[in-house]
Amino acid sequence: MSSFVYMKVLESAPWRYDRGIRWLSGGHIEALWQRLAERAAGPGRRVLDIGCGTGGVALACAALGADVVGIDMNAEMLAVARSKTVAADAGGKVEWVELGAAEIEDRFAEACFDAVVSSLALSEMSPEGRRYALRVAWSRLRPGGLLVVADEVRPTDAAARLWQRTRRAPLVALTWLLTQTSTQVLDDLAGLVREAGFTQVRETRPWSSDLAIVEGVRPAEETS
């Protein structure tokens, strides 16, 4: 999986985002959306997508018949998402809302989702924003509900970490030139998920050591 810093450039021109991210991820991005959707969605399931961007994961969930809400702070990205239509006729539907993760509680009742997904969005938040988002995700999930998040992480072995840094450096510079910003790499995604109260936390890195998918369950019985 290639570096995602360049994503910020793509975001600054949302109509280029999909093409760019597909190229950046070496064609894995659709597989990633699909994998998240397969874990989280299903006919009639209510799914929340935090930081939905141009809607890749949300639409994949809807294609499997889920009733999806995609939220993002960036209105331009949402405009691109809105222009897309739900594939297939599994009965799924999507609603797009301009909303930050810290505002979820204003719009959605507790325990109202069967699953919460988030792809390449947690790394864009501040550390306390990230913890807050995961706690809110926990509270909006029904007991037994599933969290599935994917993000760019630091590889566990030193050589891979060095390679990641080397490869990111020119992209960081280019991205800064074009957008004056950059994304961050997460250190311990699974740890954050556990800290928010999720159990049965599982981490996989199906394509490369710097992209992790983490799952967690809101326990059916309240535990602390």
Binding site: W15, A75, E76
Partner: peptide
């Protein structure tokens, strides 16, 4: 203006048309 942002490549119009984002 409220929903679009500027950066060095920025422009203040959203190019979205039927059948997907234009350009």
């Amino acid at each position: 203006i409220r929903s679009t942002r500027l950066n060095m490549m920025g422009r203040r119009t959203v190019h979205v048309g039927p059948g997907g984002p234009a350009r």
